[in-house]
C-alpha cells in the first residue's frame, strides 16, 4: 500500500518541529533553512501552511533531469535524488510546478522530499497532526467524513 503525506493547514501552529526533524534526518543538524518541508506564515490571514513535494506520478522533475539522477523508489513511490549522479544543473527546480525541488549550495546538488524511505520524520514530529502519512487512495477520507457529517441531524452533528 502506498502512503502519502497529508497536510491539513488549519491544524498547523507554525512551530517548525517538522522542519527541524526533516533537516536533522537529512543533514544531522537542526536547520530549518535546509528542510524539505516548509511552513509558510500568512500573517494578516492568521494561517500557517505546510508545503512539500506531493510525489507526482508523472513527475516533472524526474522527466526534466538530463542525467537521470531522480529515480522512483518503488516501495514508497517517492521520487528520490541520487546525489552522486546529480550534477546540480537545477533544471528540475525549474520543471517542478510547485517549487518543492531546491538547490542546496552547501552540497551542490538538489534536494527534495524522499519520504524518509517510508517513515517521514515530519509527520512523526508534528504535535498537532497537521502532517500525517496516510493511505494514498484515501487521503481525502477525513475531509469526506467531515462533509458527510453535515448530513446528520443538527442536534447530533
Amino acid at each position: 500500500m502506498l502512503r502519502s503525506l497529508q497536510i491539513e493547514p488549519e491544524k498547523c501552529t507554525g512551530c517548525l518541529q517538522c522542519e527541524m526533524a526533516c533537516s536533522y534526518q537529512a543533514e544531522g543538524v537542526f536547520n530549518p533553512s535546509k528542510s524539505r518541508i516548509k511552513i509558510f506564515t500568512f500573517h494578516d490571514e492568521g494561517r500557517f501552511v505546510p508545503y512539500t513535494c506531493t510525489q507526482c506520478t508523472e513527475a516533472w522533475c524526474l522527466h526534466a533531469c538530463p542525467v537521470e539522477a531522480i529515480v522512483i523508489n518503488e516501495a514508497t513511490g517517492a521520487k528520490e535524488v541520487i546525489d552522486d549522479i546529480c550534477v546540480g544543473c537545477k533544471v528540475c527546480t525549474i520543471a517542478c510546478p510547485f517549487g518543492t525541488v531546491n538547490y542546496n549550495q552547501e552540497t551542490a546538488v538538489v534536494q527534495k522530499c524522499d519520504l524518509c524511505g517510508g517513515d517521514p520524520e515530519c509527520a512523526k514530529a508534528c504535535p498537532t497532526q497537521a502532517i500525517t502519512y496516510v493511505d494514498s487512495d484515501h487521503s481525502g477520507l477525513e475531509r469526506m467524513r467531515a462533509h458527510a457529517a453535515q448530513n446528520l441531524p443538527q442536534d447530533n452533528a
Binding site: T13, G14, C15, L16, G46, R47, F48
Partner: peptide, 8 residues
C-alpha cells in the same frame, strides 16, 4: 487561531 513560537 492559536499559534506557536519556534519549536513549541
Amino acid at each position: 487561531t492559536n499559534g506557536a513560537c519556534f519549536g513549541c
